[in-house]
Design a protein around this nucleic acid. Structure first.
Lengths: 208, 208
DNA sequence: CCAGTAATTTACCTCGGGGTAATTTACTGC
DNA sequence: GCAGTAAATTACCCCGAGGTAAATTACTGG
């Protein structure tokens, strides 16, 4: 559950890779675990928790526990549950160049597979700010879906706007299902997943 | 939110279609709203709530409120939140013959579209009893997915078991996406959805 | 009219959730 | 040694969640 770091979680003094003595520390004069690193750890844990349970039933205490830290840390760093969720969205959206092909999607997700379900969180209340934020951060992926699927329909002479919208949803739904499958098969690499996708798509398109 | 019934929710005395006087009531000697009917109402509301928010973040109080009843009713009738969820699963699974084609799926879902997301509830904890129960109740649909997709792969000479499993997931994921799209387009009928599916599938399979 | 009972409510308990104020720890620079 | 400050904790508040015991309502059949 933790990233592979030496410190065991929940040890009262988090005496990890901290310099004692007069050995000049690398960054500025910070104490404990430097904020940037903690934020990164927290974000990773939060993406996992939010992705697994959805925003609504994710627990701040649980995230804190999995990092080996107490709740108030999350609040001093991210302000609120929504703030942390938003930070997750931004972190995910900024963790890769806009994907141009499916392989890129899997590549970005490698190491944070649950991130997909943060972006496509069904527990978000339709009218809420978070819902719009998630929608906004999905933009790159949705654009990819829209352009790819629109092309398929245009080639068929299909101009139906509802068909286009529905097919876009099918595409993201299928990818989401694939990511879910991937999560339950941790040994598969991103490359293997991309290859599998290509194979499956070919099978579907082949003459029946 | 309520099914189209005359009584407005949350009126303290639920004096709906209740016989006063000595007019012989149809069923046995019941009072208020007969248990069977209440259970049906509650189930309908619960399917909607569970489907919308997932088991974890669905609220018993909210379900009760939407029926126009108080919480203890739900508990005397269904025992617990999990009991109600289980009843939903059974109700959904028993609400139609095992579907043989996609059109049948949409037909069964008409009028309780959220039911799909009760069956495929991502907020269920992987090891839990509820998770297994949901899995069991999905059996019919999953079998449909498995057989259909296996055929596609076999026609290609693909014997890979992982591919088969992944493709099955893709199929259910795509249908789930379609149902989600359907929920946000309430005016579409089941027949229209089935037709749309056929159209989209044809478009995908057409020569690029 | 009276028991009996289905249907339903009021009022409560406990626990875990989000969130915060005040404090402690442990280092740096002077 | 002494501020100063980043990092982190303890201990709390309030609320809504699941869940329950005990009443009340409104009808039936005798």
């Amino acid at each position: 559950m933790n990233t592979a770091r030496g410190s065991s979680p929940a040890t009262p003094p988090p005496s990890g890779p901290r310099r004692t003595r007069t050995g000049a520390p690398p960054g500025a004069g910070t104490k404990g675990v430097p904020r940037a690193r903690r934020e990164a750890q927290i974000l990773a844990a939060a993406v996992e928790e939010f992705g697994r349970h959805g925003h609504a039933s994710a627990s701040m205490a649980s995230i804190a526990r999995s990092v080996g830290v107490t709740k108030p840390m999350l609040y001093t760093y991210f302000g609120s549950k929504d703030g942390l969720y938003l930070a997750c969205l931004e972190h995910i959206a900024s963790s890769g160049v806009p994907p141009r092909v499916l392989a890129a999607v899997f590549g970005v997700l490698e190491g944070q597979r649950e991130a997909w379900f943060v972006l496509y969180d069904r527990t978000l209340q339709p009218g809420s700010d978070l819902h719009s934020a998630a929608h906004a951060h999905r933009a790159a992926i949705d654009r990819l879906a829209a352009s790819g699927t629109a092309e398929v329909l245009r080639a068929q002479g299909n101009e139906d706007l509802l068909d286009a919208d529905a097919l876009k949803h099918v595409w993201t739904g299928a990818v989401g299902a694939l990511v879910g499958w991937w999560i339950s098969h941790p040994e598969q690499s991103a490359t293997e997943m991309a290859a599998r996708c290509a194979r499956l798509l070919a099978a579907i398109r082949a003459p029946h």
